[in-house]
């Protein structure tokens, strides 16, 4: 056997060293890219806290918007966001979960199913402002619902429907087929299998998807600006419960509203620095809300993965 001559050996060593350097360089690049994202995130937070933290007191949450920046608060905005989310969840959860169950457990492999699937995929990529135009043409003018809590809730429900459907399907798909077969073997009908087995077992996964969807909806601005949400509101929607019969009122659904992102948008477009501070404080509240919802979802999924052993 021939041993390598010294110069060839040196050449190979140099080439291996060069490859190793390149490898290290790429690792550094990857880490730098992640770090850049992290720094941006931190800068976003520090900037918001630096300029808005002083405004965060109880008055800020209990006051209406005002022409005077120091007295302005986000009462109408957070109540508006909350009521809109209520409608969104009430509409998107049953429809989204129902559609997910249908596509996983019932749908035959035919043209109609293919069309539904293509539609869901496509809807997930439609820009949110297009949903706003749909709502403006359909809900506001054709159905005459106006720029109300109901319109905004329905619009955002349609917007997050693909998220709820996709996560429901993924959760259902992870349940092994033998669970269903065992239930069928005992004479259960299809709905009984779904109701007593598939749905309970996939609930945490569905919940994760619903939370992520709602956190997306609560931060969406474009569609509700498009339907014409009012930016200056100094009253709350009518209370759903009243002291006199019939005790329950749904007038709040038709009430005009403002929401957190709209309030932030309104304050950012003001030139005065004091309003900019209000925008920072409101943005801080909104980001805290969405991050909490997202963190909850990530935690849920993490727990789910750990506990799930079929």
């Amino acid at each position: 056997m021939k041993t390598l001559t010294a110069p060839v050996r040196e050449q190979m060593r140099a080439s291996i060293a060069a490859q190793k350097r390149r490898e290290l360089l790429f690792s550094a690049m990857g880490f730098a890219a992640l770090f850049l994202m992290f720094v941006t995130f931190v800068a976003l937070f520090i900037d918001m806290i630096g300029s808005g933290f002083d405004r965060l007191n109880l008055d800020f949450f209990t006051h209406f918007a005002s022409r005077r920046a120091e007295q302005a608060g986000i009462l109408a905005a957070w109540v508006g966001s909350f009521t809109v989310m209520l409608v969104t969840a009430f509409v998107a959860v049953p429809i989204g979960v129902g559609a997910g169950i249908y596509l996983e457990e019932y749908a035959p492999a035919n043209k109609l199913t293919a069309i539904i699937e293509i539609n869901i995929n496509n809807l997930a990529g439609v820009p949110s402002i297009v949903y706003g135009l749909l709502a403006l043409g359909m809900f506001v003018h054709t159905l005459g619902l106006g720029a109300s809590v109901l319109t905004a809730g329905l619009t955002l429900a349609l917007l997050i429907l693909p998220i709820v459907i996709v996560s429901t399907r993924e959760a259902i798909r992870s349940i092994p087929g033998m669970i269903r077969e065992a239930a069928y073997a005992l004479g259960a009908t299809r709905w009984q299998v779904v109701r007593h087995h598939v749905l309970p077992y996939s609930l945490p996964g569905i919940l994760t998807g619903v939370i992520i969807g709602l956190s997306r909806a609560i931060g969406e601005t474009a569609p509700i600006v498009t339907i014409g949400a009012v930016t200056f509101i100094a009253f709350l929607p009518e209370s759903p419960i009243s002291g006199s019969p019939p005790f329950v009122s749904f007038d709040w659904l038709m009430s005009p509203f403002t929401a957190m992102p709209i309030q932030i948008f309104n304050w950012t477009s003001r030139p005065e620095a004091a309003f900019q501070q209000n925008a920072s404080a409101a943005a801080l509240v909104l980001v805290a809300m969405t991050l909490m919802m997202n963190a909850l979802a990530i935690w849920l999924r993490f727990r789910l993965r750990r506990n799930l052993k079929w």
């Binding site: 994202m37 976003l44 609560i218 601005t221 992102p261 950012t268 925008a279 920072s280 990530i298």
Partner: peptide, 24 residues
Amino acid sequence: IWKPVLELLAGVPTIVFGYFALFF
């Protein structure tokens, strides 16, 4: 560690990014 961090970043509302672009 990093995947959830990136997911959280994707969850920041775009109006907040707009505010960040304009004022920072």
